[in-house]
Amino acid sequence: MIHSEFTSRTKRCDVRAASYSSRSSGYRPQELIRGREFMGSASTPHWSAQLAAANLELLQHIGPADAMCITWINPGHIAIEDAVTLLGADSNSGQSVTYQQGADLYWEDYDLQDEGGGVVICGPSEGCLVMVEPNGWRGSIPETIQALSIGERDVVNVFSNVNRGIRLHWSCNGRIITAIGVDPWENHGDMPHALDHLLSDLPIREPASADSEVALQEPSDGMILESLPVPAYLEVAFRIVGHRLSLAWLESRIHEYYIIP
């Protein structure tokens, strides 16, 4: 089993927990941005066909790209068992697997799927704990995101479903700071537009045109991703946490696998 703590290599919230706790009358959401080292426009690759294709390839390996849920916890110094329990997983069901082995276990468990259950596959990445739910949704529940973020942690979640619902939440220390999604979704949270400076070049609202330079071909599974900005939402998450997930992270390391009954 992977041990419970990982060293953080990215910026923590720049404010004490008590100053913006949901129980604190002195909560000031604007302080959450102070001193934060987001990837700004100067250091962030501009959105391009190459980035869109790379993100799409990663999503297809996570699979299916139209029904997935990815959660980053930063810093990742939380026991994996505690984190997955907040998602509703059975903390005693853990086993060490590659990502593909874990995904295969889920897709081969028809009883679990019929009963509405799921799985979470998780591991450390650049100081974060990353939790992936193929065909899942538990990590997108706002109350779960808030609970995971308590203790001066940032939590970022990207979720998409087969009904073309796509959204991203960013929470810190028990508060939803910003949530964005496809139309007709509107930004909300304590600072609804706190991430606007990261979004100007990304097609997160309108479907990408078939004539666009970043338009994507229809994958073999029949999902029309050129009309869905899922890869762009993945890019938003990468910019918030300050690093990218890679195919090597998915394929070459051992992860922890838990069942969500």
Score class of each variant (00 low, 15 high):
Ile2Leu: 10
Ile2Ser: 08
Glu5Leu: 14
Phe6Asn: 01
Arg9Asn: 14
Asp14Trp: 12
Val15Glu: 02
Ala18Met: 12
Ala18Asn: 13
Ser19Arg: 09
Ser19Phe: 15
Ser19Ile: 13
Tyr20Asn: 11
Ser21Asp: 07
Ser25Phe: 13
Tyr27Cys: 14
Arg36Ser: 11
Glu37Val: 14
Ala42Asn: 13
Ser43Ile: 11
Thr44Asp: 10
His46Leu: 14
Ala54Ile: 09
Asn55Cys: 10
Leu56His: 09
Leu58Asp: 00
Met68Gln: 07
Ile70Cys: 03
Ala79Tyr: 02
Glu81Asp: 10
Val84Leu: 02
Leu86Thr: 01
Ala89Ser: 06
Ala89Arg: 00
Asp90Trp: 00
Ser93Pro: 03
Val97Phe: 03
Tyr99Ile: 05
Tyr99His: 04
Gln101Lys: 08
Gln101Thr: 08
Gly102Ala: 07
Ala103Met: 09
Asp104Phe: 12
Asp104Met: 11
Tyr110Gly: 15
Asp114Ser: 15
Glu115Phe: 14
Gly118Leu: 01
Val119Glu: 00
Gly123Phe: 02
Pro124Arg: 03
Pro124Phe: 04
Ser125Tyr: 12
Ser125Asp: 12
Glu126Tyr: 11
Cys128Asn: 06
Leu129Val: 01
Met131Thr: 06
Glu133Ile: 03
Glu133Asp: 07
Glu133Ser: 03
Asn135Trp: 10
Gly136Val: 01
Gly136Thr: 01
Gly139Ala: 08
Pro142Ile: 07
Pro142Arg: 06
Glu143Gly: 11
Ile145Asp: 04
Ser149Ala: 08
Ile150Leu: 13
Ile150Tyr: 05
Gly151Val: 06
Gly151His: 04
Asp154Glu: 14
Asn157Trp: 01
Asn157Arg: 05
Phe159Trp: 04
Phe159Ser: 02
Val162Gln: 13
Asn163Cys: 13
Gly165Tyr: 09
Trp170Val: 03
Cys172Ile: 14
Cys172Tyr: 07
Gly174Val: 00
Ile177Met: 09
Ala179Leu: 09
Asp183Pro: 13
Trp185Gln: 14
Glu186Arg: 11
His193Val: 13
Leu199Asp: 05
Ser209Gln: 11
Ala210Val: 14
Asp211Cys: 12
Asp211Pro: 06
Val214Met: 10
Pro229Ala: 05
Val230Tyr: 08
Tyr233Gly: 02
Tyr233Arg: 04
Val236Ala: 04
Arg239Leu: 08
His243Thr: 07
Arg244Gln: 13
Ser246Asn: 05
Ser246Arg: 08
Leu250Cys: 02
His255Lys: 10
His255Gly: 02
Tyr257Phe: 11
Ile259Met: 05
Pro261Asp: 10
Pro261Leu: 08
